[in-house]
Amino acid sequence: MGETIVITSGKGGVGKTTATANIGAGLALLGHKVALVDADIGLRNLDVVLGLENRIVYDLVDVAHGHCRLKQALIRDKRFEGLYLLPAAQTKDKTAVNPEQMREICQELKKEFDYVIVDCPAGIEQGFRNAIAGADRAIVVTTPEVAAVRDADRVIGLLEAAGLNEPKLVINRLRPKMVRQGDMMDIEDILDILAVDLLGVVPEDERIIVSTNRGEPIVQERNSLAAEAFRNISRRILGEPVPLLDLESNGNLLVRLRKMLGLG
């Protein structure tokens, strides 16, 4: 029996879908069978980020309403062995499924897959309730900004109230340079305020936009810190104790020099 992990945030646009795609592909690269579920009904995104938008026949709502079998709606990602997508419906709205139906779908997927990863819509309304209904554990994504961390705090409270205790935090779009200049909250600030465990830190990386343009998860790329961050997050989900990335190692000349001289 597999495990269902929901990826939430509260605030929109902080990187839930990007994280879902890359963690999913990352776990598949590590040899696991993974089903990604796009629970953002009406604003289907995950298919596009994964480059699978042309292969959709049935969707989550069709499965929930018995218009097709679960297997028929699952799209196999040919690039990542073991990775599958259950797409959201684009023309329906969030009330087209209910938490009970989501729970059943996740339950059924868990029989087949090692990991079921649910991409949650922004907000804390019904779409959120649906997305977390079948989850065994939760990941909260935030960026190092006041509004995003505030919403993360709210979501952590709601997750715990729903019995999803101790959600893990992913801090996305960190800019090491700004942190160094004292113009961005650092990892410690955020962990201190939210009082949760850290799952990983993903730096701001232009190549994420490039890879999204192409419809290819960045996680397999070499020479990208964001890719490495997502690979590490995937391994931590498996329980491996992977140390945090040194986010300075690429950009900063001084740090590179210090490294070369064996000082860093």
Binding site: E145, V146, V149, R150, D153, G182, M185, D189, I193
Partner: peptide, 15 residues
């Protein structure tokens, strides 16, 4: 002075 202290303090109060 960096704006991060301001951000952190505002966040603390908001929460």
């Amino acid at each position: 002075a960096g704006s991060k202290e301001i951000a952190r303090e505002r966040l603390r109060l908001i929460l």
